[in-house]
Design a protein around this nucleic acid. Structure first.
Length: 154
DNA sequence: GCCAACGTTGGC
DNA sequence: GCCAACGTTGGC
C-alpha cells in the first residue's frame, strides 16, 4: 500500500528543475536533520510512495510537481564525511543517526498548486504544511490530499 | 528584512 | 527535569 509524502525544498538550493536535470531525473534526499522527519524516512517511506515536491522560501510558494520514492531509507553517509556541510560526529557507519531516500521525478505540474490555492481547498485544510509555524520538511500526506492537489494542478 | 514558531543545547 | 538561550525555518 503506497503512501504519500510532501518534501520541502528551497528552489535556490534544489528546485524541481534541478531534479529534472539530474541524471536519470533522480536524486538522493540527504541532509534531513530533524528526528521526526528522519523517522519517516527511516521507518515509513517505501519504494513506490508518491512525493509532492514543494518549493519553500520561494515565489510562488507552491507544490510544483511530484516524484516517486525509488530507494527506501538508508543511512545518510554525508553525515560521516568530516568537513561536509551535513557532517555530524554523532553518526557513524556502525550507528547511523540520519537517513535518506532516493526519489525520481514523476511530473512537473503545468500549473503549480500555490499555497494560497491550497488554503482555499477544503480537502487540504488539515495539511501540516499549512499550519502556522510548521517546519517539518518531510510530511505524510493523505490520499484525499494527494488527489486534491492533482485536481488543482489540472 | 522581519520575526514568530520551533527544535536543540546546555547550565543548573 | 526544567527552562532560557540560541540557531534555524519559512511565511509574510
Amino acid at each position: 500500500m503506497a503512501r504519500y509524502w510532501l518534501f520541502k525544498s528551497e528552489p535556490d538550493v534544489f528546485s524541481i528543475q534541478d531534479l529534472q536535470n539530474s541524471r536519470g531525473k533522480r536524486t538522493s534526499w540527504e541532509g534531513i536533520r530533524n528526528y521526526q522527519a528522519r523517522n519517516f524516512l527511516r521507518d515509513d517511506a517505501q519504494v513506490g510512495d508518491g512525493v509532492l515536491f514543494y518549493h519553500s522560501n520561494a515565489d510562488p510558494l507552491a507544490i510544483v510537481g511530484t516524484a516517486t520514492i525509488v530507494k527506501a531509507g538508508y543511512p545518510d553517509h554525508f553525515a560521516w564525511q568530516d568537513g561536509h556541510k551535513y557532517f555530524d560526529a554523532a553518526s557513524t557507519p556502525d550507528q547511523p543517526v540520519w537517513f535518506m531516500v532516493d526519489i525520481r521525478l514523476t511530473q512537473i505540474f503545468r500549473h503549480p498548486v500555490t499555497r494560497s490555492s491550497l488554503l482555499l481547498e477544503p480537502d487540504c485544510r488539515d495539511m501540516l504544511l499549512l499550519k502556522k509555524g510548521s517546519r517539518l520538511s518531510i510530511q505524510p500526506v493523505t490520499e484525499s490530499e494527494w488527489q486534491a492537489v492533482h485536481r488543482l494542478a489540472n
